Simulated assay, not measured.
Amino acid sequence: MTEHVVIGVDAGGTSTRCAVVTRGGRLLAHGRAGGGNQYSSADPAGAFESALRAALADAGDITVDAAVFGVSGASVGDANAVRTVTGVWKALGLPGTPYVSDDIVIAFAAGSAADAGTVLIAGTGAVAAYVRDGAVARRCDGYGWLLGDEGSAVWIALAGLRAALASLDGRGRPTVLAQHLAGALKTTPGDTQAIVRAAYARPPAGLGELAPVVAAAAADGDTVAREIVAEASERLLTNLATVAPDPLDAAPVVFAGALLSTGPVADTVREGLRTRYGTTPRIAADGALGAAGLALRRSGAPESAHAQLLKPPAAGERPRGRTAN
């Protein structure tokens, strides 16, 4: 028997995830491939196709009613992203035309089925936004590592590297970051020029991989690292307050991104949200589920189907899925 489904795709800088979902909000199959950012990934079209093929191979006999792509590095209706997505979609012989959105609304929809609310994203980059009716109504930051992304993993890593170098050349206070970051970069502790060369050799997004070193030092009590984490958390809270409605508890708040899932930044920002606004955030699920939730709504499915999709799976319930080679 043919199953009517929708498809959601979340294309980030490091991975692209695809979810095939029934009209009732049940995850049927999923696929995963490489990065699909329109500007930083090597082959977005190839990633889209691989993730789709991986999910469709396990979905069985289906009819696709709607699809939504959330593409990092693209705005809603971005011409380049639309062209790439449409080309892959047609090449696979799929019906209709997918809706192309950005990863901000997808992140909100991965944490809430509400029509409006606030989302704070902190991973490699950072952005806050107020989302209404599937579109960004207000946003703060998300300007990339050079001009913004304050409080992000890259921001934390850069602050840690600056503090380490200042400690080594005598401008700053002593900190274990001088040794720990040198070790993470596989350079000789105390060799400032080696640290500089290793840092500049990494792409900006790759520097974000050093943020856990700073977080670990903060957790161990290093004063400089703790101040960096506290400052990152404060900047994220400021971004959220800039876009959020007043009162904040009038609509849900969704946290998304690795920095806000666990660790000292997540703990500090969550506590700041609770003490300042009396609000507990919702944690976003896989972005592909958010994209599929928006696809359900665009197909005419009730809000309850989107809400059902975001519920944790029952014990032992696993959808079919694979990672593309």
Rank of each mutant, 00 (worst) to 15 (best):
A74V: 07
G263S: 14
L56C: 07
C18K: 03
I195D: 01
T63W: 12
V5I: 14
V127N: 01
D78Y: 04
R197T: 13
T84C: 08
A157S: 10
V253P: 01
V9M: 00
V254I: 15
A107R: 00
I156T: 13
A110E: 05
A19V: 03
A153H: 03
T16V: 08
G290E: 03
P95N: 12
V9W: 00
E150R: 11
E227A: 11
T238P: 15
H306V: 11
A184Y: 04
L52F: 03
C18Q: 02
G123L: 05
R235E: 15
R235W: 15
T242V: 13
V105N: 03
G31M: 01
G73T: 07
A126K: 05
I121N: 03
K90H: 15
V21K: 04
L165A: 11
A218R: 07
V127Q: 04
V176E: 13
Y200S: 12
A314E: 14
A159F: 05
L289C: 06
L309P: 06
K186V: 15
T84K: 06
S40C: 13
V224M: 05
A215N: 11
A284S: 12
A324G: 09
R320L: 03
E49W: 04
L27C: 06
E234Q: 14
H180V: 13
I121M: 04
A315H: 15
D58W: 05
G96M: 12
V64M: 05
G287K: 03
A284I: 10
L309C: 06
R171L: 08
N239L: 11
G190H: 12
S167G: 14
R17H: 09
V253T: 12
A232T: 08
E227N: 14
T279H: 12
G35N: 07
T14V: 08
R139C: 10
T124Y: 07
L146T: 09
G12K: 03
L161D: 00
T16S: 01
N80C: 14
V6P: 03
T86M: 09
D249C: 13
A42V: 12
V196P: 06
A51E: 03
L28H: 02
R226I: 12
V127R: 01
S261P: 14
V21F: 05
G208Q: 07
V88C: 07
V64T: 09
